[in-house]
């Protein structure tokens, strides 16, 4: 059953990724990105990461992709892009070669690692990780029998919450600060420059770079 779910969700994720690369219209690309993200959320569920699956759908599909779509509509760049011309000679073959190289190296690495782990070393490493770090496990061990029977409905969220607010509470606070800074920065960057508040000269579209430097120097 899990295998069937994996195959279907994995195929959908790959189809979504291919659509993201292949569609001419940015809106279609964003929608196929949603497909890919949903499929990855299903894979999270398949691996008992219920909280992350929910967060994946809410944050990625619900917020980030919608933000992308807002920007696409706002800028009016939702017309189709001409993909038939290749602007830089040899860009696509080189890009494909690099992509295939990344894939080949990753799969090679995984296969080497899988050979090492096939002889029952996985449980040994798991114990090692427990004994060495003991950070995440100490919080989960506090749950006692709750964790071992593994039949309760929401073990994952409870464990995650306990760990996040004990061992990783400082990092958690720092992410809050990061998000605040990001919001302030976004407001600053996207503010419409008007009057004397605009420090940059309006650069004429599609002009060469030399003109721009002269304008900048004049100003």
């Amino acid at each position: 059953m899990e295998f069937v779910v994996f195959i279907i969700a994995g195929l959908l994720a790959i189809i979504g990724a291919l659509g993201l690369i292949g569609f001419k219209n940015p809106v279609h690309s964003a929608l196929s990105l949603v497909l890919s993200l949903f499929a990855v959320a299903v894979l999270f569920l398949n691996q008992d990461a219920q909280f992350l699956a929910a967060v994946q759908v809410i944050v990625y599909a619900g917020a980030i992709v919608v933000l992308f779509l807002f920007v696409i509509m706002l800028l009016g760049v939702d017309q189709a892009e001409d993909l038939s011309v290749e602007p830089i000679a040899g860009q696509r073959p080189i890009a494909l070669a690099i992509g295939a190289g990344v894939l080949a190296l990753s799969v090679l690495f995984i296969s080497v690692a899988a050979d090492g782990g096939a002889t029952g070393q996985q449980s040994v490493t798991a114990e090692k990780v427990d004994s060495i770090t003991g950070t995440a496990q100490s919080a989960t061990a506090a749950l006692g029998d709750n964790q071992t029977d593994g039949t309760e409905t929401i073990p994952n969220i409870e464990q995650l919450g306990r760990t996040l607010f004990t061992d990783y509470v400082f990092a958690f606070e720092v992410t809050a600060l990061l998000l605040t800074i990001a919001v302030v920065g976004a407001v600053m960057l996207a503010r419409k420059p008007k009057g004397e508040l605009a420090p940059l000269p309006v650069i004429p579209g599609r002009s060469g770079t030399t003109d721009e430097t002269e304008e900048l120097e004049d100003a």
């Binding site: 994995g10 790959i14 993201l20 690369i21 894979l43 890009a95 990344v102 990753s106």
Partner: peptide, 21 residues
């Protein structure tokens, strides 16, 4: 291993798209 290979495929597709588009 299946999950890791799928993740590698998705990563490579993302990298290719970043370079092509």
């Amino acid at each position: 291993t299946w999950y890791l290979v799928l993740a590698a495929i998705l990563f490579a597709l993302g990298a290719t798209g970043l370079l092509v588009r």
